[in-house]
């Protein structure tokens, strides 16, 4: 039985098969409408995350399965002091697969150790959020054509951004990707990531202004720069505009560039950008459902041979 704890749990070959399945789901939704008939997904969310929970539930419902679960710790037995390992043993009796979000790092790993059903880490504190990374990879692969040979700019809070760190590590397994890190000095990419980039001989540069590099990018991955991350209000006001994507900055970019964002956005992408053909962040949310559908099928052992049958 397999679980998903980190995006690196799957080899690149396994990811290719997962993404092929997700792309087939995108094209032939009807074909998959009943593959999970009679199966149940438990969404065990110890902290609220509407977007992630709903995308998991939509994925299972699209596959013909059912969903049950809780959306915050106070409505679960955790409030009575039940351990994660006890909870998952019980959930294993009720459902066929579980997606778990927990504020404590490693909680889904504890669940996986004691579970009789596959467990998907749906986010554990600041540690991992693998289905977001799989969503990002699928979006890039689908819209760019491949996961190699491009320049990606990562913009905003690169210091605390779990999503960004996870995506960089996942992309380091592919060929010929250049990274451009765009952030204020205070929110630079951490040194341990820089060390990993150097070890893998990845090409990268660090800059502080989006305008200076936007013309060179094939992909721009935006994240939020939060006011509370700055030491003082003055710096925040001085710097925040450098990290807001608007029409004027987008005019400097390639016509083929794609703009991604893990969402929710606040003001870092101006709404005037939404109708530009390069804005791909809502499409990205849609890919999040496809990749979770493919993941549920794969972990339930329902993906084997599906694509081969297609070719006949």
């Amino acid at each position: 039985m397999r679980h998903l704890m980190s995006p690196l749990d799957f080899s690149t070959g396994e990811l290719d098969r997962l993404f092929d399945l997700a792309n087939d789901i995108e094209k032939n939704m009807d074909k998959y409408a009943h593959v999970c008939d009679g199966k149940k997904l438990a969404t065990c969310f110890y902290e609220p995350s509407t977007r992630t929970r709903l995308s998991f539930e939509a994925a299972m419902l699209n596959l013909g399965g059912n969903v049950l679960g809780f959306s915050e710790a106070s409505s679960s037995s955790a409030a009575k002091g039940e351990s994660v390992s006890d909870t998952i043993r019980v959930i294993s009796c009720y459902a066929d697969i579980c997606a778990m979000r927990h504020p404590k790092e490693g909680a889904p790993m504890v669940a996986a150790t004691h579970s009789l059903i596959p467990v998907i880490n749906a986010g554990d504190g600041g540690h991992q959020h693998p289905t977001q990374t799989l969503t990002d990879l699928l979006t890039i692969r689908s819209l760019n054509g491949s996961l190699s040979d491009f320049t990606i700019g990562l913009c905003g809070d690169l210091k605390f951004g779990r999503t960004v760190h996870s995506l960089i590590r996942a992309l380091l397994r592919y060929e010929n990707i250049k990274f451009v890190f765009i952030s204020p000095e205070e929110l630079r990419i951490p040194d341990y990531i820089i060390t990993e980039l150097k070890e893998k001989n990845a090409e990268f540069e660090e800059v502080t202004k989006l305008e200076d590099v936007i013309g060179t990018l094939d992909i721009l991955y935006m994240t939020r720069v939060q006011r509370e991350r700055f030491f003082n209000e003055e710096d925040y006001i001085r710097l925040k505009d450098f990290y807001i994507l608007n029409k004027a900055k987008l005019a400097l970019a390639k016509e083929t560039m794609m703009v991604l964002h893990p969402l929710p956005r606040v003001n870092e992408i101006s709404v005037e950008v939404d109708n530009d053909k390069r804005a791909a962040y809502f499409k990205q949310a849609q890919y999040g459902v496809y990749v979770r559908m493919a993941l549920i099928m794969t972990l339930l052992g329902l993906a084997d041979g599906v694509l081969e049958n297609n070719d006949r």
């Binding site: 351990s83 994660v84 390992s85 927990h102 504020p103 404590k104 790092e105 490693g106 909680a107 790993m109 504890v110 554990d124 504190g125 600041g126 540690h127």
Partner: peptide
């Protein structure tokens, strides 16, 4: 020693 680790709240782990 990570205060955000699951071991910080589940003593029997």
């Amino acid at each position: 020693k990570n205060p955000r680790c699951i071991t910080s709240i589940e003593q029997e782990l």
